[in-house]
């Protein structure tokens, strides 16, 4: 995995975050308590003089890991976050893509409407998935959350789209350029708190975190951040290999994202 220049990545993220805050009236962020969205919050604190100046939304299907809930409450207090918890209860038969593709976006739609958010910061990265690498730094979504990937707005240099459909919103992607290994290098450099589930216990660790239903750990002995960085230097395994919904059917990620998956 390629290690990029951290400083360049950091500057770009700060620029995109500030640009998002300038362009839109009512910005919120999704926070899954995972490594990426937590890194994004750390970057926001740099961009906005020590504060996270927007609400952070946790779409909670009530079956996240206990460690995840504990981490959420710990950091929300420590960083004085304006946390919005929106419950997305799942039916027993709606696991995997049915949960992530339907229940969670439906809950998010309600929250967005309730608070009137016109932009949403989402901490996706290009190297996670072929579909995510097609994303823009700022990307409009329709009222029904649809991603019109066949006709994305032009995005040149630092000129981002501010096109808003009636009732729609714009997704802001400040971490698009980061690779997985860069996230960990940045976490190390900045001493960003992380969910303990990322570290190996009994020979397994979570490399990508979802809820208890759709995430499985991968084989790993990485017990520290340094171990993780070392592991990622030579790994041939995909980051999201422990995420069941990615593999359910062909083009699941494309369909999920087109429908508004985070």
């Amino acid at each position: 995995m390629i290690k990029q220049d951290i400083k360049t990545l950091e500057e770009k993220s700060i620029f995109v975050l500030r640009e998002g805050k300038q362009k839109f009236k009512n910005v919120a962020a999704l926070w899954s308590m995972g490594k990426d969205s937590t890194t994004m919050l750390a970057l926001a604190r740099k961009a906005f003089l020590g504060k996270v100046p927007f609400p952070v939304i946790h779409i909670d299907n009530r079956i996240d890991f206990p460690e995840t809930y504990a981490f959420r409450d710990y950091l929300a207090k420590k960083w004085n976050l304006n946390l919005i918890v929106a419950y997305s209860d799942i039916a027993p038969d709606s696991l995997g893509s049915a949960c992530c593709g339907k229940n969670k976006p439906e809950t998010l739609k309600k929250v967005m409407k309730q608070y009137g958010f016109d932009a949403l910061i989402v901490s996706i990265r290009r190297d996670e998935h072929g579909i995510r690498s097609k994303e823009r730094y700022m990307s409009p979504r329709s009222k029904s959350f649809k991603w019109n990937y066949k006709d994305q707005p032009a995005e040149l240099w630092d000129e981002y789209s501010s096109k808003l459909d009636e009732g729609g919103h714009v997704r802001i992607h400040p971490l698009l350029d980061f690779n997985e290994i860069d996230i960990w290098r940045y976490i190390k450099q900045e001493k960003i708190p992380v969910n303990p589930l990322y570290f190996s216990r009994n020979g397994f660790r979570y490399r990508s975190l979802g809820c208890t239903n759709c995430t499985v750990p991968v084989k790993s002995n990485a017990k520290t951040i340094d171990d993780i960085i070392k592991e990622l230097e030579s790994t041939k395994i995909e980051e999201r290999s422990g995420r069941s919904m990615d593999k359910e059917r062909e083009y699941t990620m494309q369909k999920l994202r087109a429908l508004g998956y985070m």
């Binding site: 390629i2 190297d127 072929g130 990937y149 994305q152 690779n179």
Partner: peptide
Amino acid sequence: FILDSFAEEREQEMTYDTTRAQIKYKKLA
């Protein structure tokens, strides 16, 4: 198809939208 990830791109054998891919080469990426 390693790059063209949209279903439409593969079926029609054409790239719809821009994407990026990285490699290491000597001292650079």
